[in-house]
Every structure is written in C-alpha cells, then in structure tokens.
Design a binder for these strands. Structure first.
Length: 238
DNA sequence: ATAGTTGAACCCTGCTGGAT
DNA sequence: ATCCAGCAGGGTTCAACTAT
C-alpha cells in the first residue's frame, strides 16, 4: 500500500491511520475466523496515530473508506463497539471492517508493482536526460573553445531554455518530450560540428593539395608568393 | 504566490441514564 | 413516561501552516 498509495488514492497520513486501525486487530493475520471488524474510539485512534487531531483522523478514515480499503460498519448511534455473545466472546461488532484488505491484496500488490516499474522507467529517462544534457553542454563548450565557426552562443541559449523548461518533479511524459527535443538538438549540434570541421579540413586540403609547382629555375620571389591558382582556391585537378 | 493540508471551534444527530 | 444533560461520532468552516 505504501508503494501503491497514489494509485489506490490514499495519503501517507491515511496509511498511518490504517496502521493504527490494524493495531486494534486481535490477531496477526486478518481472516474471517477472527472477524474483520475493529472498533476503536477516535480517542484511542488518536493516541495510536501519535496525537492526530480528531478532525484529521475523521478525514483520513473517510479517505480510507473512499478508497475502498475499509468499510464502515456503523452502529445505530454511530459509536464503535462490539456486543458480547452468550459464551463470553465477541458478537456483532460496529466499527470498520478490514475485509477489503484481504479481498484486494492481489490487486494492491499488482498496483505496487506497476508503480515500481513506473519509478524505474522514470529513473532511466532521468539518466538519459542527464547524459544528453551533459553531451550537449560539452559539445558547445568544445565548439567555443576550439573557436569552430557557428552560432554557438545562440545554441547555448536555446539549450539553457530547453533545460529550464523541465519542472522540479517532471512527469514521465514531460521527460519523454524534453528528451526527444534534446536528442534532436544534440544531433543537430553533432552534424553542425561535423560539417564545420570537415569544411575546415577540406579548406586546409585545398591549400595542402595545391598543385605542386616545381620550377627548376625559380624566380627569387616565387617561393614567397603563392601561385594564382592556389590564391583563387582552384583545385589541382582544375 | 498559491494550492493543499491541518487543526480548532462549532454545530448536529442519536443514544444512554438519571431526575422528576 | 418524559425530560434533559452528557457522551461519542460526524460534518462544516476558517485561519494557520506547509510544500511547491
């Protein structure tokens, strides 16, 4: 129930009240043979919830009833008590029935497993998001450090905007959306970097691959002055 | 700043038991 | 038999507090 509380629709305080209710159950195992009804007064419940105020107690009891975890077994005057049967044991009891806990045990276990799986998925997404953000920050940093041509300041601003759009406790869907945006952005950065570095390399090759001019009788200035073709960026094969 | 939660105060209901 | 105070439980309101 602690894991599945959100799916079941109860708060942690309501679970504390349920815990207090369970301490009034006479046996360790909830079973029909032991009866399902507990009948503590609000005062006793308040004591066992470490002094929870009566109003809050009632609200949380109502929440447990609303969530279908307990059932009210009201007496005519609303008081909780049990009639003694002839043999000195308990007869009819008025209070709260814990039967739904037994009936819904499997369902609650499945809900808890669902919540755990969701949390795991959330954690995985968060990790991917962190890695992606780290990648982007590093790539932009390198581009700026290496003074690679490109609108890196604008990209950094865009990255900051994307990062800031994530709330403190994002939902899985919010993270999936942002992750898609960031991954696309990272791809764009990588492509831009590849293109720019390739262009720079190619430019350098043009210079390096320039026609080898061999002059067996060189003019004294020809070694200092590049050839016209090289100056114009004309490739050797041209 | 805002929404949600909490707790005190007050009121209502139904039952019980003592006084008349 | 009737009345009434007391008790226990529930509901509502509102100010204070807390988390986001």
């Amino acid at each position: 129930l602690c894991e599945a509380k959100e799916l079941v629709g109860v708060s942690d305080r309501a679970l504390a009240v349920l815990n207090a209710l369970l301490t009034f159950y006479p046996k360790n195992e909830i079973a029909e043979a032991n009866g399902f009804v507990v009948f503590p007064s609000n005062e006793q419940l308040s004591l066992r919830t470490h002094g929870m105020a009566g109003t809050t107690l009632r609200r949380n009891l109502a929440m447990l009833v609303e969530a279908g975890l307990i059932i009210r077994r009201d007496s005519p005057n609303g008081k909780r008590f049990a009639r003694r049967n002839g043999e000195g044991g308990l007869g009819e009891a008025f209070g709260f029935s814990l039967a739904p806990l037994v009936v819904r045990a499997r369902e609650i276990e499945a809900q808890a497993a669902e919540v755990l799986a969701g949390k795991l998925e959330w954690k995985r997404l968060r990790e991917r998001l962190t890695l992606c953000r780290r990648d982007i920050a590093k790539l932009i940093e390198i581009a700026l450090e290496e003074e690679i041509a490109g609108e890196w300041i604008e990209m950094q601003k865009h990255f900051n905007l994307l990062s800031a759009s994530l709330p403190r406790r994002p939902s899985t869907a919010e993270m999936e959306n942002l992750l898609a945006d960031l991954e696309a952005f990272r791809e764009l950065i990588v492509k831009t970097l590849e293109l720019k570095t390739k262009t720079e390399k190619t430019d350098a090759n043009d210079i390096q691959n320039g026609r080898h001019i061999h002059n067996s009788n060189p003019h004294p200035l020809s070694e200092l002055e590049p050839s016209f073709e090289t100056k114009q960026g004309v490739k050797p094969e041209d």
